[in-house]
């Protein structure tokens, strides 16, 4: 690829290069696909190219995008977390359960105030992350199987606690993150944008962010260089749990209730977005900006397929096929011959 023109050139003294400055080439590979999806969408339906529809797409993608940040932190360090999707359901459920006083509608009867319930939601995510950390980092169990079991366990806890009921009638403050608007734009979009900016910079310009890359790129070298590998890994799992809980709160706010299946199957789209966005499953490679383009591509596609009136039963098949194509495309255009 053209970006490799600056391979080691012996004899030449060094310039303060800015080679991978703001936008690496890899982060742009999905742009043509996004543009194509928009063009197709504008032909498919008149309703597509409207600002309302775009806000709609962004809002519907916002929760997914926050979980993608969470997964990216862990993938960069070379591990996995499948249980994030269960946290998206369980954490806001716990908050709602603590708030609701009526036990008939699935509440706990505690009647917790909303301003205590929201920290409780985040705490729930942190606790799940900490337990995952204990099993993966301390006991050295395989991350895939640990978080798969955790996914099933948490899903079951959610069903068990509410008896399969949908929780509604929640205070407006509790729903604010998913329903409020700032300057006419949903809060959840602002929130996702701020998180992408903050964590994107964190991953690039903070030593802990770089430590994640070092761990995923070569864990032994990171350890020899003095990175506290276990601690950083554990921290990443906890922060990821909290982000997933936050995403769950945003989702709950948008639909004004907690359904028992909230977050179900989300993890597939989380991995799909991250991987087509250039995050390596082997760790140490990829950027948050790329992951964001992955989320946007999937969000636009979902929207286009709905507007194009693809029969509902076929939407998933088409969606899956397009994800595969996007993967192939991103390998051909961006990944080049690079491994992983």
């Amino acid at each position: 690829m053209a970006n490799n023109a600056s391979g080691a050139a012996p004899g030449r003294q060094i310039a303060p290069g800015r080679r991978n400055s703001l936008l690496g080439l890899r982060e742009l590979t999905l742009i043509p696909a996004i543009v194509l999806a928009i063009i197709v969408g504008s032909f498919a339906s008149d309703a597509f190219l409207t600002s309302d529809n775009f806000l709609n797409i962004l809002q519907q993608s916002s929760e997914l995008s926050v979980v993608v940040i969470a997964e990216t932190l862990i993938l960069l360090a070379g591990k996995f977390d499948l249980s994030l999707e269960s946290v998206v359901g369980l954490a806001p459920m716990m908050g709602a359960w603590l708030i609701i006083t009526n036990q008939q509608t699935g509440g706990s009867g505690v009647g917790l105030a909303w301003w205590l319930a929201i920290p409780a939601v985040l705490l729930c995510g942190a606790i799940v992350g900490a337990i995952n950390g204990f099993l993966i980092v301390k006991l050295r169990l395989n991350a895939f199987i640990v978080t798969l079991a955790m996914l099933i366990l948490l899903r079951g806890m959610q069903l068990g606690t509410t008896g399969g009921k949908t929780l509604f009638d929640l205070p407006d403050e509790y729903l604010y993150l998913g329903s409020g608007k700032w300057l006419g734009i949903p809060v959840s979009i602002w929130l996702a944008a701020i998180l992408y900016a903050l964590l994107g910079l964190f991953l690039r310009y903070h030593r802990l962010g770089r430590a994640l890359y070092a761990i995923g790129g070569n864990v032994e070298a990171a350890r020899v260089a003095g990175v506290r590998v276990d601690r950083v890994m554990w921290g990443a799992l906890i922060v990821a749990g909290m982000l997933a809980a936050l995403a769950g709160l945003m989702l709950t706010g948008r639909i004004a209730s907690v359904v028992p299946s909230q977050g179900q199957n989300m993890i597939f789209y989380v991995f799909a977005s991250a991987v087509i966005g250039g995050i390596s499953l082997n760790g140490g490679k990829g950027r948050l900006l790329g992951a964001l383009t992955g989320v946007l591509l999937l969000g636009i596609l979902q929207n286009v397929l709905t507007l194009a009136e693809i029969p509902a039963f076929w939407i998933d098949a088409v969606y899956g096929a397009i994800i595969l194509m996007a993967l192939v495309l991103s390998r051909v255009t961006g990944g080049g011959t690079e491994e992983a």
Partner: peptide
């Protein structure tokens, strides 16, 4: 290779880790 460098990271990052 196994303990010294993180291959995908830049020279600057590899050198300033300490």
């Amino acid at each position: 290779h196994t303990q010294g460098i993180v291959p995908l990271l830049s020279i600057a990052e590899n050198m300033t880790m300490t």
